[in-house]
Amino acid sequence: MSSADYAMIPTPIGPFTALVDHEGAVLAAGWTDDAGELRELVHPRLRPDELRRRESLGAVSRVVEKYHAGEVLAIDDITVRQVSGPFLTHAWEVLRKVTPGNPVTYTAFADLSGRPEAVRAAANACARNAAALFVPCHRVLRTDGSLGGFRWGLAVKRWLLDHEAARAN
């Protein structure tokens, strides 16, 4: 039986919960207080059978607090564990390299991922990302500059983009 630890961290935009495996790698994260909802986002090969609530996840909890307090690069060193096919796995790695304060379009994201014609696949990588914040899919916009979608709501996405833009300048 596999298990994962989780903790909820209060943030200016609502509760943020992260699930980590036995090595401390983030399996799923988002602006919710429902760890069960996050568990369902984890790929079946990695999905834990049991969730254990913790007061803190150590470095992961501290980084979430630092990010929301303005240290937008703090998330970069946190290990994330997600699995899928080669394109999605690569696309998630590419997302982690998009600079805070400089969002890209889905078209540019597809190009950065090495498949410029695969705009829908790039959008799918964002939609299937279980580790929000640590794999910053919020940094991808529609071609016309509008927000597009975000699992945790467009108000959260707007706050994150504004927060990062304010720190980038």
Rank of each mutant, 00 (worst) to 15 (best):
N129V: 02
A91M: 11
F87A: 01
A108S: 06
R115V: 06
A127M: 14
T105F: 06
P86C: 12
F134S: 00
G85L: 10
H90G: 10
C126E: 01
L88F: 15
A122L: 08
G85A: 03
S84N: 05
L112P: 01
G101V: 08
A110N: 02
S113D: 01
T107G: 04
G114Q: 12
A122I: 09
A130F: 08
Y106H: 05
V98T: 07
A132N: 08
E117D: 15
F134G: 00
V119G: 00
A108R: 10
P116M: 05
L95C: 12
A118Y: 14
F134E: 04
W92H: 09
P100K: 06
F109A: 02
L133C: 01
T105N: 05
T105A: 07
R128Q: 08
P86H: 15
E93Y: 15
F134L: 11
L133Q: 03
N102Y: 15
L133P: 03
A118K: 03
E93W: 15
T99L: 13
V98H: 07
A91V: 11
A91N: 04
A123Q: 10
K97S: 14
L133H: 01
N124L: 14
A123I: 00
P100V: 13
V98Y: 09
D111H: 12
A132R: 06
E93P: 06
L95Y: 11
V98P: 02
R96K: 10
A123K: 08
D111N: 09
F109P: 00
H90W: 14
R128E: 12
A118C: 08
V98K: 04
L95W: 10
L95K: 05
T105P: 08
R128N: 13
P86D: 15
P86T: 14
F87G: 01
F87M: 09
N124Q: 12
P86W: 15
R128I: 00
W92D: 00
G114P: 05
A108F: 03
D111T: 07
T107W: 06
P103G: 12
A121D: 06
A132C: 11
F109K: 08
A121H: 05
K97P: 02
S84P: 01
A131L: 07
T99H: 06
E93M: 15
P103V: 09
F134T: 01
R96Y: 07
S84A: 14
R96Q: 10
F134H: 03
G114H: 05
E117R: 09
W92T: 01
R96D: 02
A108Q: 15
G101W: 12
T107D: 08
P116N: 10
F134M: 08
R120A: 12
K97T: 14
R128T: 04
V94Q: 02
L133I: 12
A118W: 15
A91F: 13
Y106N: 00
C126L: 05
A127G: 01
V104P: 00
F87V: 09
R115Q: 13
V119S: 01
A122M: 07
V98I: 15
A125V: 12
T107V: 10
A125D: 01
S113Q: 03
V119Q: 08
V104N: 02
L112W: 13
L95E: 02
N129S: 11
A110E: 02
A110K: 02
L133D: 00
T89H: 15
A110S: 07
P100M: 10
F87K: 04
A132G: 04
A110T: 05
A122T: 05
A123P: 00
